[in-house]
Deep mutational scan, measured.
Amino acid sequence: MAEIKEKICDYLFNVSDSSALNLAKNIGLTKARDINAVLIDMERQGDVYRQGTTPPIWHLTDK
């Protein structure tokens, strides 16, 4: 899980924002549900936040 978090942070640092599906595909996974639990956990920790569009767009925080 730590490896996936690191990949998410690296990708969002370079791209600035992404949907869960696009993010999953760009870090080597196939479906948004493969990454949603990790994104929600990271959101609780304050590492990422989502804009409430459908589907949500994920961003890194300034943390």
Rank of each mutant, 00 (worst) to 15 (best):
A37N: 09
E6S: 06
R33M: 14
P55Q: 05
S18L: 01
I35S: 07
I40K: 12
N22T: 11
P56R: 02
C9H: 11
M42C: 01
S18H: 07
L60Y: 03
V15P: 02
P55T: 09
D47S: 11
G46T: 01
R33V: 15
T30M: 10
N36P: 04
E43T: 00
N36W: 10
P56S: 03
T30D: 15
W58G: 10
A32D: 12
Y11W: 07
R33A: 15
N14L: 11
E3D: 12
D47H: 11
V15Y: 10
D34V: 05
V38T: 11
E43I: 00
Y49A: 15
S18M: 02
A20Q: 05
V38Y: 00
V15Q: 08
K63F: 09
G28V: 02
A2E: 15
G52Y: 01
A20S: 09
D41E: 15
Q51W: 06
K7D: 04
T30Q: 12
C9D: 02
T61R: 08
R33H: 14
C9V: 15
E3I: 05
G52C: 04
K25Y: 03
L23C: 05
C9A: 11
A20G: 05
V38F: 00
I27T: 06
A37C: 06
Q51G: 10
Y11A: 11
I27C: 06
S18E: 04
W58I: 07
D10E: 13
T61H: 07
G28M: 01
E3C: 01
T61S: 12
R33C: 14
V48K: 02
F13D: 13
E43G: 04
I27G: 03
L60P: 03
W58C: 06
T30G: 12
D47V: 15
K25N: 09
L29V: 11
G52M: 01
S16G: 15
G52L: 01
A24Y: 06
A24N: 02
I27E: 09
A20E: 10
Y49V: 14
A2K: 14
I4L: 14
G46Q: 02
A32G: 12
E6C: 02
K7Q: 00
S18Y: 02
T61P: 06
R50E: 06
T54C: 11
N14V: 08
I35N: 06
L23F: 00
L60I: 03
N36H: 14
N22C: 06
Q51S: 15
F13P: 10
K5Y: 01
G28W: 00
Y49F: 10
L39M: 08
T30N: 14
V15M: 10
N14I: 09
R33W: 12
I8N: 04
V15K: 12
P56W: 01
L21I: 12
S18Q: 05
V48C: 06
D41A: 08
H59W: 00
D47F: 10
I27V: 10
G52R: 04
R50Q: 13
E6I: 00
G28S: 05
Y11K: 09
L60S: 05
E43N: 02
L12V: 02
D10N: 14
K63N: 08
K25E: 11
E6T: 07
I35T: 09
R33N: 14
Q45H: 12
L12A: 05
D62I: 02
T30I: 08
P55I: 03
D47K: 13
D47A: 11
D34W: 00
T54M: 09
Q45G: 01
S18P: 01
A2Y: 08
L29H: 08
V48S: 03
K5H: 02
E6H: 03
I40Q: 14
N22W: 03
F13A: 15
V15E: 12
N26P: 03
E3T: 10
M42L: 07
T61F: 01
S16F: 01
A2F: 05
I8T: 02
C9L: 14
I27N: 04
E6F: 01
D34M: 07
N14E: 14
N36V: 06
L60Q: 01
D47P: 01
L39K: 11
V15T: 06
L39S: 09
T54K: 12
N14D: 08
T54P: 02
R33E: 15
W58K: 08
L12G: 05
V15D: 05
G46N: 01
D62P: 07
L21P: 11
Y11T: 07
A32S: 11
I4Q: 07
Q51N: 12
I4T: 09
P55L: 03
G46W: 00
D62G: 10
N26Q: 13
M42F: 00
I4E: 08
N22F: 00
A37F: 06
A20R: 03
C9Q: 11
G28A: 05
T30A: 14
E43C: 01
V38E: 11
I4S: 08
D10K: 13
I8A: 03
E6K: 13
V48I: 11
C9W: 12
Y11Q: 10
I57F: 02
T30S: 14
L23W: 02
A24P: 04
N26C: 07
V15I: 10
L39A: 11
E3N: 10
L29E: 13
D62L: 05
L29K: 04
G46R: 00
P55G: 05
M42H: 01
R33F: 14
